[in-house]
């Protein structure tokens, strides 16, 4: 328990450090939120530019802006976006987070449930036909550009066969559907996006699983288990697999911040209004409060993910349990 409190207390200075660096880097990038509106615009005179800059508080030095931002942040006030809509950052993030998390979780589940068996069987039957074919397929998935694959699938399933919708994540008549119909509608829309996003992730995870498994299989205790006369199934699934799964905890921990991140290319091609687009647009428009809002949430989740991984380890692996 004391360990937990210490870890959490240590997270606060780390978080502040991250925000200072992010803020400084962001400010160093040329241009500011008013550029898009004012630069190369014949209707802007000096006076109007000053007015707009003052409106956003950009006329103050950056450390003043940072401290002001931090003060609000402590009270969990993320501020208002500098984009023309001027909406609270929290609103902008929260309307995009559900769909992003849904897609990421589903795709993570798909990746794990496909790549773990692939990895295990490839390791157990090393250099077999299955090993070679599955490696080939996962590497193709890794190498194929997302946008190309997505477009091909859209043409096939959306235009030619007309089985699945092409883009978006719900139909135009969504609000007139029954609850069950709505779930079905969203599922139909998500088939392609989740398949495409998971396909690219298979390679990493299955190769990782394969090498873990290979390493474990060569351990003495596996030989011991076999020597005991246990059948191969028990050896692999009870003794080897459980140990080979341990390092996945780290990966799981590291994917926690990824849950709110989205890929710009992927969201753009499927016209899904998720976090990736929001972050990209915010960076392009130098929308400081929104950028910082997303970064802070991302940083907090990273730290939380690490903590979670540590805790899971000590639960799963008695060897590294911290003694009180």
């Amino acid at each position: 328990m004391r360990f937990l409190i210490k870890r959490i207390a240590l997270m606060i200075p780390t978080l502040i450090g991250i925000t200072i660096i992010s803020f400084a880097v962001m400010k160093m990038a040329p241009g500011d939120p008013t550029s898009l509106m004012t630069d190369l615009n014949p209707n802007m005179n000096e006076e109007a530019v000053k007015r707009i800059r003052a409106h956003y508080g950009l006329d103050q030095p950056w450390h003043v802006q940072y401290i002001k931002w931090l003060g609000n942040m402590v009270a969990l006030d993320f501020g208002k976006s500098f984009a023309a809509d001027n909406r609270p950052v929290l609103d902008k993030i929260s309307e995009r987070i559900p769909i992003t998390i849904l897609i990421n979780i589903l795709s993570l589940i798909l990746i794990f449930s496909v790549s773990i068996p692939i990895g295990v069987f490839s390791a157990v039957k090393q250099d077999s036909l299955f090993d070679r074919v599955s490696s080939l397929i996962v590497f193709i998935g890794f190498a194929v550009p997302t946008f190309w694959l997505a477009l091909l699938l859209m043409i096939l399933f959306g235009v030619k066969l007309d089985w699945l919708p092409i883009s978006g994540f719900r139909s135009l008549n969504y609000s007139y559907l029954t609850p069950l119909g709505q779930i079905l509608d969203i599922s139909k829309h998500l088939v392609l996006p989740i398949f495409v996003s998971a396909f690219g992730g298979l390679a990493g995870m299955s190769r990782y699983m394969r090498s873990n498994m290979l390493e474990v299989i060569r351990q003495d205790y596996i030989t011991t288990a076999r020597a005991k006369g246990l059948d191969e199934r028990t050896v692999i699934f009870k003794h080897a697999l459980r140990n080979a799964l341990l390092p996945l905890i780290t990966i799981l921990g590291l994917s926690v911040p990824g849950l709110i991140g989205g890929s710009v290319i992927f969201e753009t091609i499927f016209a899904i209004p998720g976090m990736g687009q929001l972050f990209y647009q915010s960076v392009m428009m130098r929308d400081y409060p929104t950028i910082m809002g997303i970064l802070v949430i991302g940083a907090a989740l990273t730290l939380f993910g690490n903590l979670l991984a540590d805790l899971l380890y000590s639960w799963a692996d008695p060897r590294i349990r911290v003694s009180d």
Partner: peptide, 18 residues
């Protein structure tokens, strides 16, 4: 007005008559 950020996707939607 449907927001579709990618022009290739938009063209496919057009061809699908949506």
């Amino acid at each position: 007005t449907r927001i579709i950020p990618d022009l290739a996707t938009m063209f496919l939607e057009l061809k699908a008559l949506s």
